[in-house]
């Protein structure tokens, strides 16, 4: 591989989900882009997945290959040498859950803007009207955010938001509980009260594959306690939600996330986003962000 277009060593040394396993077919070469680097992948006769970078024609230089791991229904690769494994989602391995690849979306926005949108509850009544929220129930109640240096991730807990149809069982609106994790600069996992068992939580994860600093593919994985809905219904629901976020994300300016605290106007509801921006700043990440002037 010639020298990468992305110069951010932190971004280069991360693992990225590239495609759901069911879309990697025997002998068929598919192309993609990661951090502006063209890559290609296929499933070899042995059943193993092979990934390599190339110069644009997809051809595999002799002996070239990138690291591969299969995790959460996707294969992951990296352009660098990660010093940490892919983060854990323990719920994925619980036997009574359904794990579903909901969609891979192309979005003309930076990865950190998507993460912030994923953490944000205040937009539910305005962007996901009558699904995840509805006016006049617009209040974002106080919640907790902590940053664990040991696990190197952000955790927001005690989040509650009023939803018009809290579950299939309820006829009216109610507060729904959320927990958010940011275990990777470009990935996030949310947990929300499960429809069939209020004591347990569904998990929804986004794994973002940066194409450039200002465009991404985002892969959405669900790990649900739901034995009635069809896969198709579940996918259509998530795709509706995401389809509502996409035009907002593509109309944010600047597209890269500004890390200067004075670039935008945070409110208390944005606590998790403020901690996220500070975490990115402290990591020294530069890809997909506008770093704060030193």
């Amino acid at each position: 591989m010639s020298s990468p277009k992305c110069k951010d060593p932190i971004a280069l040394n991360l693992w990225y989900a590239i495609a759901p396993l069911e879309e990697v077919l025997d002998g068929k070469v598919e192309r993609s882009i990661l951090l502006e680097q063209p890559i290609a992948f296929t499933r070899e006769p042995s059943g193993q997945i092979a990934v390599w970078s190339h110069d644009g024609d997809g051809a595999r230089p002799v002996g070239a290959s990138l690291p591969v791991q299969e995790r959460y229904g996707y294969f992951w690769t990296t352009l660098g040498t990660p010093d940490a494994d892919i983060f854990a989602i323990p719920e994925y391995d619980e036997p009574d859950r359904r794990n579903i690849h909901a969609a891979s979306f192309g979005v003309n926005a930076s990865a950190p803007r998507l993460v912030e949108n994923f953490l944000d509850m205040g937009h539910f009544p305005y962007v996901h009207t009558d699904i995840l929220g509805a006016e006049p129930h617009t209040e974002v109640k106080e919640y907790f955010v902590e940053r664990s240096d040991e696990r190197d991730e952000i955790l927001a807990t005690n989040c509650k938001f009023w939803q018009p149809m809290a579950s299939r069982a309820s006829s009216g609106g109610a507060d729904v509980d959320y927990i958010y994790r940011v275990p990777h600069p470009y990935c996030s996992v949310l947990y929300k009260s499960a429809a069939i068992d209020p004591a347990r939580m569904d998990a929804i994860a986004i794994f973002i594959q940066p194409i450039t600093q200002e465009s991404v593919r985002v892969h959405m994985m669900l790990s649900l306690l739901d034995d009635t809905s069809t896969d198709l219904d579940i996918r259509l629901f998530q795709q509706t939600i995401f389809g509502q976020d996409k035009p907002i994300l593509e109309n944010q300016y600047p597209k890269r996330l500004p890390l200067d605290p004075r670039a935008e106007t945070p409110i208390r509801a944005d606590k998790s986003a403020i901690v996220y921006r500070r975490w990115l700043s402290d990591k020294g990440i530069t890809y997909g962000v506008i770093p704060a002037a030193a």
Partner: peptide, 12 residues
């Protein structure tokens, strides 16, 4: 053309 909060275009 941007909301002070999160930079979304006010023209939408």
């Amino acid at each position: 053309n941007r909301c002070l909060h999160r930079g979304v275009r006010l023209s939408i």
